[in-house]
Amino acid sequence: MSSVSIRFNKATYVTGEMIEGQAVCQFRSPKQFRKIKLRFKCKEHTQYSKTKARYNSLSGKTEFRPVKFTGDNIILFQEINLLEQGELPSGEHVFPFSFYIPHGFPSSFHRKNGDITYSFKLIVDRAFKFDIEDKKIVNVISLIRFHDISQILLSPLTLSDENTICCWCCSGGSIEVQLEFDNRVFTQGKAKSIRVSCSNMSNKNIEEISLKIKQKIKFITTSPSQNSKEISDTIYKTQTSGVGAHGDKTCFLIVTIPDNVDVPNFSVSRLFEVYYELKLKAVVSGCHKDLEIVTEVGITNVLHPADAPQRTFENDAINNATDYPPMPMPMVNAPVIGMPMPAEGYGLPSYSDSAYPPEQPGPLAPCNREPSAPSGPEYAQLLSNELPPPSYNQAVGN
């Protein structure tokens, strides 16, 4: 039996690359055809069901029935003729092909409520006979770089939330949480530090501080009417210890988006939208309102050296959430600044064997302290030899 097949040079391609492969025709007998053609298509599809209420005038009751919503859109379509009308003998015939995937096109995406698929279809078009066909799906990854992210997310930002603890109309102090970003863009697989400051001037404890990042995908349909459905998934979460009453804390939360998280690019899609939300939550003990900071963030799946550099705090953060290190204690027997210091006394290198003699210390700066008052027997003898001060008449006399 005759057959056709599509072979790719590799399993996964990246936007901006050429998809290369071969169209293979295996005929057991000579075949006449009108065309041998290859179609390349990128198609998006959405579907879901919603329950809608409907009033039945005959029964006088409100009935609920499911309604199916769908959406279809072709993002890219190309077709090439590998061979015009003619006849091929029996045997194997190989036709190489290549298609270009433009930058910014969406990633391959497959979910329950929708998908984006890149497919190839090889067709041997025969007159008055069944066509010989083969269809294959190729996986495409769309790169999301820093310059693809909104400029608003690339700017530094500081957010805060504050709450005053009240009990029976009596103020119990205030609590403030502050979140500091150098930028709000995370690179998949790369650690990024976020600075969190908490000032608890109340008489209640903050039990814990948690951070979550959610991926929200909107599925848009066009039939029977324009509609949408949003699905939210938590792609990252972490937490650290809280703060006791009348205390404060500053720490760094290390956030790393896992490599197995699907980060789609829907920049030219009409039926899909993606949004990432970061939420910081400080849980207050007792029946009091928790403090929350919610903001939009962006995620990239590739980082190039030419991308905008980001200021990070990895060198300062030791664990998942750590406090500031304590201030260094003063040195014991430390030399006085500005005074000459012998090289041998403090473990500094000696210049006795050096080819260059040490520089002579410059003159010392004058002392700014007030001189101490003279005292002792010598000062008393000095006072006895001095003349007494003049009287008033001598001072004002002519």
Rank of each mutant, 00 (worst) to 15 (best):
D259C: 11
H246E: 05
N200W: 06
A306K: 12
N200L: 08
V196T: 09
A317S: 14
K216V: 05
E314F: 07
E314I: 02
T234K: 08
V268P: 00
G286I: 10
V255D: 04
I217K: 04
I217N: 06
S225E: 15
K212D: 14
A321N: 10
G247L: 10
G242V: 03
K192L: 09
Y276L: 04
K218E: 14
I206Y: 05
S225R: 09
A308G: 03
L271P: 08
T221G: 05
I254P: 00
T300S: 08
F266I: 01
F219A: 00
I213F: 07
S197G: 08
F219H: 14
G286L: 06
A317K: 08
H288F: 15
A317F: 03
C198A: 13
S225N: 06
T295D: 10
S267D: 09
T221F: 01
V283C: 08
T240K: 00
E273H: 01
V302T: 11
Q310W: 03
I220N: 04
L291K: 01
T187L: 01
D307P: 04
N301S: 02
L303T: 11
N260H: 15
R311S: 05
K281C: 13
S202E: 07
P326W: 00
I318E: 07
P264S: 06
G298S: 02
A245W: 01
T238F: 02
A282F: 05
K229C: 10
T295V: 07
L278S: 01
C198Q: 08
P325Q: 13
V243L: 11
Q188R: 13
K190F: 10
K289N: 12
I217A: 04
K281I: 14
T238G: 13
N301H: 11
E296W: 01
Y236D: 00
N320I: 13
H246A: 09
M201I: 08
K237D: 07
S269W: 02
A306N: 09
G242I: 02
